[in-house]
Design a protein around this nucleic acid. Sequence first.
RNA 1: GUGGUUGUAGCUCAGCUGGUUAGAGUGCUUGAUUGUGGUUCAAGAGGUCGCCGGUUCGAACCCGGUCUUCCACCCCA
Length: 462
Amino acid sequence: MAQKPGIPKGTRDFSPSEVAKRNYIFTIIKKHFETFGFQLIETPSFENSETLMGKYGDEGDRLIFKILNSGDYISKVDSATYESKDSNAISSQISEKALRYDLTVPFARYVVMHQNEIDFPFKRYQIQPVWRADRPQKGRFREFYQCDADVVGADSLLQEVEFVQLYDAVFTELGLKGVNIKLNNRKILAGIAEIIGAKDKLIDFTVALDKLDKIGEAGIKKEMLQKGISEEAIAKASPLFSLSGTNSEQLTVLKELLATSEDGSKGVEELRFIVDTIEMLGLQSAQLSIDVTLARGLNYYTGAIFEVGAPQGVKMGSIGGGGRYDDLTGIFGLKDVSGVGISFGLDRIYLVLEELNLFPEAIDRSLEVLCLNFGDREALAALKLVSTLRGAGVKADLYPSSVKINKQFKYANNRNVPYVILIGEQELSEDSFVVKDMISGTQETYNLKNPEAFLKEFESTN
RNA sequence: GUGGUUGUAGCUCAGCUGGUUAGAGUGCUUGAUUGUGGUUCAAGAGGUCGCCGGUUCGAACCCGGUCUUCCACCCCA
């Protein structure tokens, strides 16, 4: 019995035109990564569980795909654990490998393992799929690609500045105007928590604060109260809830608010440096804005936090994110190596470009010239011409069988082929070929002995 | 992981309160056109109504389960 074909939830097949569009994005990202001096590495699709577990918080652990051990794994579980029906306890005994959840933690592991062969500062980029056992939604998959660029071994804030420029360069070339690069600093969040006397509630406080634009001021106050943050503390923090104005104005307010916090003041200084430097250098199409409610990746970011939002009017979560993590390699035993990096969410960028119709028209032009097949003798001459065209780098093909011309034309039309070449009995006897421009509908005759004439014409219009 | 939502022709979707033979547009095939596509006209093919079970004389429609889609949480690219 034939089984019904299907693919797992949250995964996708990519057909030719989708792959072409995805490659278009990859190529642009890659190009800019390389012009910024990043080197490509790859890491395994799965890691030892202990490398991944505990690095993304409890929530993250839940979303890690675990790989079952080989062999008769269940017999090796001790009876007490087996009887306990405790999923976590059992899974640690029947699974010791897991699919990669992001590219940053494997990179940290890589740096520690290869520390003796790396020249620091090390700028690497990596474009590979990652897996999350999440419940899918629009722009949210269980298998998706991340495009990461990170620098390790450089404390300078100039790195942060560079990453803002990198975001700007990529999105500008993609034609995605007006992306908003949001910038925050973990030290500012820590400083605020310190000032309001809720240092121990930093995570709860920032997670709530992060939802400001979603549930509003009243909503986050309520959530903070529920998490055990005092009303007094919330009142102290309230200037943040309505923080507005230019980056510079916001920094002035923050500086005052955080004057008595060493951490907080440092964060303000760092932000000011980045903002001022970018101001002097200028951006092509993106805008950089401070957003104190930004609180992503708190489990490891220690300094700058980046997030890129889709342009206004596009309903999509963030299309990129990143930040500085001073001690990520620390957990693998390498102290005092600072890292900072950003990530592009390829799959989401794809959806945004698609929605805004920003892919170049000719992107899925997989064939530029199609020779029609009029029969054995004609096809032979056509194949000779096709070889010449291919030699000149033209994507050319000969229709494989001499079916009705009508059908062959229809095929060319569906494949979006801009030029169709006809070599029939008459052309063959005259040693010529006819080129039909499928867009204008006009036809022109060339000599078979001089295909360069057509090539010249072709080059000039493409 | 929690709550909801969706699934009917290759694709986009109609389908009344449960009632005979499940429709449209588009695409496909054939012909008008045996050497000219994208427009037009005519004819034709194409369906386990997601899957499994239940209720009923009778189920695309009601009920349960399951898978899938999308949405809100959680979290995140």
